[in-house]
Design a binder for these strands. Structure first.
Length: 433
DNA sequence: TATCGTATCACAC
DNA sequence: CTAACGGTGTGATACGATA
């Protein structure tokens, strides 16, 4: 007989904006947004920005004027900073529970099963305080018997004014809490996205309470297995396991939209060489090999003409590899086959697939030296780049222009306070870099 | 008929 | 001045090709 599970879901509030505010307190209590790559869309908003009606995911150019009128601030995203803050937060929480599953850059599940209900609430409070005191990060915490319930509790912790950052949907569940839960909109449930929510609403299922009371046969008939798992989890039955170690990735994607549309093969060569290089670095960091890759190029999905390019090609490697040179070669040979002169390309990408552990692969003794994997050269290259800076050692096809059209726009990035010495204010102002 | 690969969708963050 | 709209990853499902 298994003991009841009790899970906590800790989620940082407005994570990217909060990280920026840690290092620039002048941003507190202000309308602040952080933009996606290429300064494209709003991906994180301060409470004040939400209050002012700045939507999540809205293209920046559509709200730029509104932001200026509000005296608001838009920042390019600074992933080095967010990743570092995330690591600190996760490390801090790791020792405050039996086990931890890092779910995303700003969220983790914690196993609180060993705690009594009272202890669990006390521990949640401690975690909130610890993150605020040592990292200045505000978080909300939801407690529940399943991941879906913990996520829902977290939504309620964010939504309900009186929750003060913590909401408990574990037992014992007060009738009051239960009714609050039943009033939550279906779309706020983890796993029920925009489309399913709209569909459910159209048949009168608008809230969690409606969903729990709906006849299961009717749901089974019209919806996927996912919705049933979600429903079971809302009823307290575990369908989604707790993963302390992340399962091996099945694919690695490296892709970017370009700062400006490009037409020349040379630009695409450089961009795709860079993407293949990034993908290969991650592949080696995972200790893996890829068996095939896909490359794709495309124009703007918003282009008025229907003739915007959109092409892809799959390439089978003669043997699994993590060698940047082989992956770049394959990438460029693929590009040759799909490139068409004169078109306006706006995005490209490399997708590595057929990923296997490096130790799993038995090299073919008849293969030539160039097919060696995890070669000494790659290890040395990674080492040098790690020590002396990204791309100090690189394939020539990546190019060396500081300002190529395909490079991202990123005009408003804050300093990488925690990871790049040159960007500490005291160093840069002294001109030491 | 069972299975396989691929494209597409839905979802999350 | 104007035009301008993310990236990474998983799983389900549909469907035609294949053995």
């Amino acid at each position: 007989m298994s003991v009841m599970r009790r899970l906590a879901l800790v989620d940082c509030n407005n994570f990217y904006v909060s990280c920026e505010q840690v290092f620039n307190p002048a941003l507190r209590k202000r309308v602040v947004v952080v933009l996606s790559n290429n300064d494209g869309c709003v991906v994180s908003r301060s409470a004040e920005a939400k209050q002012a009606g700045i939507g999540m995911g809205v293209p920046y150019f559509k709200v730029r004027q509104q932001l200026e009128a509000l005296g608001g601030i838009a920042l390019s995203s600074n992933y080095a900073l967010y990743a570092d803050m995330s690591h600190r937060a996760m490390t801090l929480m790791r020792d405050m529970a039996e086990s931890q599953e890092i779910y995303s850059i700003d969220e983790c599940f914690l196993d609180f099963s060993a705690f009594t209900p009272d202890q669990a609430l006390i521990q949640a409070t401690k975690i909130r305080q610890a993150l605020w005191q040592s990292l200045s990060l505000p978080v909300c915490i939801g407690l529940g018997a399943t991941k879906t319930l913990a996520k829902l509790a977290n939504e309620m912790a964010k939504t309900l004014k009186e929750a003060s950052g913590i909401c408990n949907l574990s037992d014992p569940l007060s009738p009051w809490r239960e009714s609050q839960m039943e009033e939550m909109p279906v779309g706020s449930v983890w796993g029920i996205g925009r489309r399913t929510a709209r569909s459910l609403e159209s048949i009168g299922i608008k809230t969690v309470g409606d969903l729990l009371q709906a006849p299961p046969q009717r749901l089974r008939k019209n919806y996927s297995i996912n919705l049933f798992r979600t429903l079971s989890e809302l009823n307290g039955q575990t369908c989604i396991g707790f993963e302390q170690v992340a399962p091996a990735r099945q694919q690695i994607i490296a892709s970017r939209s370009f700062g400006h549309a490009v037409k020349e093969v040379q630009d695409l060569n450089e961009a795709l060489s860079t993407f293949a290089t990034r993908a290969a670095e991650r592949l080696r960091a995972d200790g893996s090999l890829a068996s095939h890759l896909q490359i794709y190029v495309r124009g703007s999905p918003f282009a008025e003409q229907a003739s915007s390019p959109d092409d892809a090609i799959n390439i089978q490697l003669s043997s699994p590899t993590n060698d940047t040179r082989r992956l770049v070669d394959a990438t460029l040979s693929g590009l040759k086959l799909i490139y068409r002169p004169g078109l306006r390309y706006k995005k490209a990408g490399v997708i590595l697939g057929g990923i296997v552990p490096a130790h799993h692969y038995q090299p073919d003794l008849l293969r030539t030296q160039s097919h060696n994997n995890s070669s000494t050269l790659m290890r040395v290259m990674d080492h040098i780049n790690d020590r002396f800076g990204r791309d100090v050692l690189r394939v020539a096809s990546m190019g060396h222009r500081d300002e190529a059209d395909w490079h991202m726009s990123c005009s408003r990035r804050s300093r990488r306070y925690t990871t790049t010495l040159d960007e500490l204010p005291v160093f840069s102002s002294l001109g030491l870099s």
